[in-house]
């Protein structure tokens, strides 16, 4: 028995070492990035791993300014796109899920089967057609084509439906009817509050997904005023930044910082949300 405990302890030590190593592996690149954002190009060239901050944050910021990378414009545009797309996706997915759960209509089952079928279709398949379509109606260099299509998010309808099936009692709907509440009013005033927990989880993921999206903005937006954050980031790969190491690290840091704040504030919900997403099967 004693020998067994010793082996268990040894195994446990091994597990902790591996887990700590993996945690360091997650943090280390970002740590180097944040530290190098405060170091001068000369310092970085001397020793590219700085574990403590230096004092060149402001001069790096000055180098960044006046060039193509504009984190404020990128931030505002990404905010608009992500907020708009999240609102569209969460509201209309909930509405569609409610239609699937609360009413019995002839096409209900076929419609649900259809949603299941298109859930897995990759978006890039329609990329060229989408670009051509947007070009023809003059919607390139507009943020709308990054927002409105989120109205149809099959995977979220699926998730919301599962949630409603488990948590909605149709008696509530019936008593609302007896009280004279109109159907649309019932949805907005009674059903939406019930769905809040599911909406919050889905909202976080949709927001982050849209914040990080590169492909669609890249093909649609050519005007610098409309660039979203990921496109702004991609400019840091350009030749004008080739020797400005500190400034590049600072630019990268500025795009990571908001995500870090959101992530560490909501990490519990995010991890729980990922786990929940898998169990929807």
């Amino acid at each position: 028995m004693k020998g067994m405990r010793a082996t268990t302890n040894l195994t446990k030590t091994g597990i902790y070492i591996v887990c700590i190593f993996l945690s360091v592996l997650s943090i280390f690149p970002f740590w180097v990035m944040f530290m190098n954002a405060t170091r001068s190009t000369f310092e970085i060239q001397q020793n590219s791993i700085g574990l403590v901050p230096s004092k060149f944050l402001l001069s790096n910021w000055e180098i960044l300014q006046g060039k193509t990378f504009d984190p404020i414009v990128g931030f505002v545009n990404s905010m608009l796109v992500s907020t708009g797309a999240t609102l569209c996706a969460v509201y209309f997915s909930s509405l569609t899920a409610y239609a699937l759960v609360a009413y019995s209509w002839k096409l209900r089952q076929p419609f649900f089967t259809f949603i299941m079928a298109v859930m897995m279709i990759p978006t890039q398949v329609s990329g060229i057609g989408f670009y051509q379509f947007m070009y023809r109606i003059g919607w390139t260099n507009s943020l709308w084509p990054l927002i409105i299509p989120a109205t149809a998010t099959p995977a979220m309808v699926f998730f919301m439906r599962q949630y409603l099936m488990a948590s909605l009692s149709l008696d509530i709907v019936d008593s609302a009817r007896i009280d004279g509440s109109r159907e649309f009013h019932t949805f907005n005033r009674i059903i939406l509050p019930i769905m809040k927990p599911a909406m919050a989880t889905q909202a976080i993921f949709t927001f982050v997904f849209n914040w990080n999206r590169l492909f669609e903005p890249l093909i649609l937006l050519t005007d610098g005023d409309k660039y979203t954050m990921p496109i702004m980031v991609s400019l840091l790969r350009g030749d004008i930044y080739k020797t400005e190491y500190g400034a590049v690290y600072l630019g990268l840091s500025m795009t990571v910082l908001p995500l870090f704040i959101v992530y560490f504030a909501l990490s519990k919900h995010i991890i729980a949300g990922v786990a929940l997403g898998a169990l929807k099967e």
Binding site: C19, L22, S23, S26, I27, F30, V208, W211, N212, L214, M229, P230, I231, V233, S234, L236, R237, V248, L252, T255, V256, L259, Y263, F264, S267, K268, I270, I271, V274
Partner: peptide
């Protein structure tokens, strides 16, 4: 939390 973290960071940023 730490192991999952890289997943939510912008892929464009990570590439650069």
């Amino acid at each position: 939390v730490l192991i999952y973290m890289p997943n939510i960071i912008t892929a464009a940023t990570i590439a650069i």
